Amino acid sequence: EPLWIRPDAPSRCTWQLGRPASESPHHHTAPAKSPKILPDILKKIGDTPMVRINKIGKKFGLKCELLAKCEFFNAGGSVKDRISLRMIEDAERDGTLKPGDTIIEPTSGNTGIGLALAAAVRGYRCIIVMPEKMSSEKVDVLRALGAEIVRTPTNARFDSPESHVGVAWRLKNEIPNSHILDQYRNASNPLAHYDTTADEILQQCDGKLDMLVASVGTGGTITGIARKLKEKCPGCRIIGVDPEGSILAEPEELNQTEQTTYEVEGIGYDFIPTVLDRTVVDKWFKSNDEEAFTFARMLIAQEGLLCGGSAGSTVAVAVKAAQELQEGQRCVVILPDSVRNYMTKFLSDRWMLQKGFLKEEDLTEKKPWWWHLRVQELGLSAPLTVLPTITCGHTIEILREKGFDQAPVVDEAGVILGMVTLGNMLSSLLAGKVQPSDQVGKVIYKQFKQIRLTDTLGRLSHILEMDHFALVVHEQIQYHSTGKSSQRQMVFGVVTAIDLLNFVAAQERDQK
């Protein structure tokens, strides 16, 4: 057995438009009618409502009807409940999964919650491996369901041993009777949507819809739904939504950006999952974080739909894509998950301010006199920076000697690579993860907040409520011999709460 199987392995699926269902090699399930009293909570997966979006479509000038398939009504709160249950049931049916076995899954959280929910009911041990950027709410729900959680670096490539995929496979090879159901490759993922989600949409719309818009992560949702719609409703256009920084969209030119990270969760990847059939997507749109969270908040405030950030991405694209539809036509959007997962993220004004998705003037509360002053007023001194090749031991000596707790790590040209902190280095040394002679590049981390000289002290204040420091950066445009230009970030300084307090105190003292 291989040590790991690539999540982007070539698909062996034989589905073709027009091929009889009787030739399918898979076990198919028909939607079942729910009894009045459910035998367990797993029976509350599927049969989610279709809700008309009344205000947002009109606000953006849509002539067509805009409908939302509300997947956050599933038992675990997301569309991923469907595939989690289906993968477990299919693994039980073919004898792969037996009582007492362990389920391991690399996930952005929602599939993990679905699997942990099913594992709690069915009696399996469950280990979820997820990147650090995923919300604390997801972690809390997983723990409450009895799952064990392993976190991995957000910026690790999918084929790196440190990625959530790599760590999951390492655990599988170490733990007896453990299984990775593997949402990236498992046919049960798109089949769950082909058999149930798509049929529900067709039934709820009486077979009449002209466009379907869905955000894409593993691709199982859009693949399964689109294949069924292509068979039953061939005139329906399928629109895929991919965040900026991901590479799922086609044509490839759409993916060209210097951005590699994004805040919206559960969609987009740096590889093409095996289950994603991009041939059934008629057109791709890219979405960005700001519009995703703005539209998610709009869905909550104006439509009462308590959905997550990827739902915002989907609707932001839908109001663009559906401009081509006329009166009497219908566009369906998939709202994948609930706001429950993001209470401390985009639902929080403070978080939105820190990330730059909300401006101070958007909030009406009274601010102190210094709130709208610029960061450049602080008069920061030149920063202490270190090269990635310097040793951890030497870096600790320098920081202690100069009285700093942290320093930016830059390359020879001064471009920011990340940050090192005294606390992080000492804990890594004590844990045996690094040696004093190791290069400081081994303990770089990139989960820090950046701020510009033109940003306000109010925004800085919000950042420092949650973080010990902020890195002050400025952009530099560099022209190359080819005539092309590129933008790079340079370090201007490091600012802490002490710097802000000293500035405010000094100004008030001078005024007296």
Rank of each mutant, 00 (worst) to 15 (best):
T279Y: 13
Q354R: 07
V386F: 10
D270I: 01
V409S: 04
F293G: 01
N255F: 07
T294P: 01
E290A: 06
D289C: 01
G483I: 07
D277I: 01
A505R: 01
K283Y: 08
A316D: 09
L417P: 10
A506T: 11
E303G: 07
E324I: 13
K449F: 08
L305E: 03
S313T: 14
K359S: 13
T482E: 05
E290Y: 10
E291F: 08
V319F: 14
Q354C: 04
K366R: 01
E475G: 15
I396H: 14
F503E: 01
F404N: 01
K442H: 12
K446V: 11
Q259S: 04
F357D: 01
E397M: 10
E412N: 07
A296G: 11
K402W: 01
Y479T: 15
E303C: 01
T389L: 09
I451G: 08
K367C: 15
F293A: 04
F448L: 11
L426G: 11
H394L: 05
Q406A: 07
S428A: 11
A506I: 13
A316C: 04
L384D: 15
Y262E: 03
F503V: 13
M419Y: 14
T260L: 01
K433S: 08
F492T: 15
W351L: 05
K320V: 06
T456Y: 09
G418H: 12
L457W: 01
M490E: 15
I498M: 13
P436S: 09
L254V: 07
H394Y: 12
L422Y: 05
D510F: 13
V264K: 01
T364I: 14
L501E: 01
E327V: 06
V241S: 12
T385N: 15
E365F: 08
K283I: 06
G418T: 08
G441Y: 14
S437V: 13
D282K: 13
V409W: 01
G240R: 05
K512F: 08
L426N: 09
H468W: 05
V494C: 15
V494S: 13
F346V: 03
E475M: 07
L399R: 04
T279R: 11
R297H: 01
E324V: 13
M419P: 11
M298K: 13
E401C: 12
E253M: 01
K446F: 12
Q406R: 05
T344C: 07
G266R: 14
E263S: 06
Y479L: 13
H468V: 06
L426C: 12
L464R: 05
G483Q: 13
S427F: 09
C331Y: 01
L471F: 10
G268S: 04
K446G: 07
V472M: 12
I267K: 01
L426I: 08
E377N: 01
T261V: 07
V386R: 07
V339Y: 08
T421M: 13
V241L: 01
I444K: 01
K366A: 12
E377V: 15
D405A: 12
E412S: 10
D411G: 08
N341T: 01
G379V: 11
T261D: 07
G483K: 15
K286P: 01
G379L: 01
G308H: 04
I390R: 04
D362L: 09
Q376P: 01
W370G: 01
M425S: 05
T454V: 14
T421S: 09
H394A: 01
I477G: 06
S437G: 14
L299V: 14
P368A: 07
L306S: 07
R452I: 06
H468P: 14
L299I: 15
K359F: 09
P336C: 08
T261M: 06
A316M: 01
E508L: 14
I498Q: 01
K449R: 11
S428L: 10
